[in-house]
Design a protein around this nucleic acid. Sequence first.
DNA 1: CGGATTTGAGACATTGATGTCTCACATGAG
DNA 2: CTCATGTGAGACATCAATGTCTCAAATCCG
Lengths: 184, 184
Amino acid sequence: MAFDRDHVLRCAADLLSRKATATQDEIAKAAGISRATLHRHFAGRDALIRALEELGMRQLQEVVDQARLDDGSATEALVRLVEASHPVASFLAFLATENQLFEGEELNEGWQLIDVRIAALFKRGQESGEFRIDLSPAWLIEALYGLISAAAWTIQLGKTAPRDYTAMITGLMLGGLERRTPQP
Amino acid sequence: MAFDRDHVLRCAADLLSRKATATQDEIAKAAGISRATLHRHFAGRDALIRALEELGMRQLQEVVDQARLDDGSATEALVRLVEASHPVASFLAFLATENQLFEGEELNEGWQLIDVRIAALFKRGQESGEFRIDLSPAWLIEALYGLISAAAWTIQLGKTAPRDYTAMITGLMLGGLERRTPQP
DNA sequence: CGGATTTGAGACATTGATGTCTCACATGAG
DNA sequence: CTCATGTGAGACATCAATGTCTCAAATCCG
């Protein structure tokens, strides 16, 4: 069995996003490896968390690249962003709720860069008239993370189907809950 | 200084929602009391978490009562619900992300009762034609918790003003991000 | 005021998670 | 096949957080 670093980190994110106090034993078991092996690759909890953040950030950067936020309408770009975020949802669910990391700066910059790019998308939509202007980009970013996390959890718990991921998030975030009244 | 149980629990929720691995020392300091006193009132971390869940649930029940979910339009009821949830937002932010609790059942029932009532609100809105029907009540509940948590965090970090709490959540959840095109 | 109660600060032992090591076994490369 | 590498299981020491205790100071109440 070759050691699958990404798989281990994904399992860790899945578990830690719902039980932040999980022990190394539990994490190892969730990943299907022994505690010894876990410790060989990640020397301690801090190192594991750091690796989690690093991989999550790198993947999210790729997701943002892949979504081509500057192409087409802002709405289309947002849908592409959400769609592409599906594989990273577990990481985001964990990282969005664990702010303790941001004490050890440095990596912080990476997140800010990502936030700036997503904020630019919301601004673009607002300036083009696609999006309403009474919701600040800062709030919209947090709300997006919140909805992604919520979606990841509902899927993890089996309450909703994975295939509905994108539609759940974009449906609510773009269209809102109110039914569009068909013009008479 | 009289011991203010609710104040301590609120501070604990604030802290734990962003740093779930905080020690008893940190929690006590955040609440402005000594670790000894903290331990006198909550014998151990488990007891503290339990009390947190208990108070959070009780408060949320009162919030749901207060919001009169059956009165007026579903939209108005949802706005009242969000408005009333503001003081409890810290607790929800913590409890929504800590599913480890639901291993010790029993209290679970209380949450299910609340969820049923909120789900009924969404169903009512869908049946009356106010709300779109392609988003399941189960998802809408999780999304609502996710948005409440996200709003609590942005306010806690000073990114947005507390007074915008209700408008941020209801604005996004009800109306969505897309600008309503005025009919020609 | 004076007693009763509660708190804060610290010392101390206990506990549970962690870091470290060893060794048998499995897997893969040559 | 044979060697080399990596893994799982377990024992063991270490360490940090916790639970428990004491005592002086502060607060409350009659």
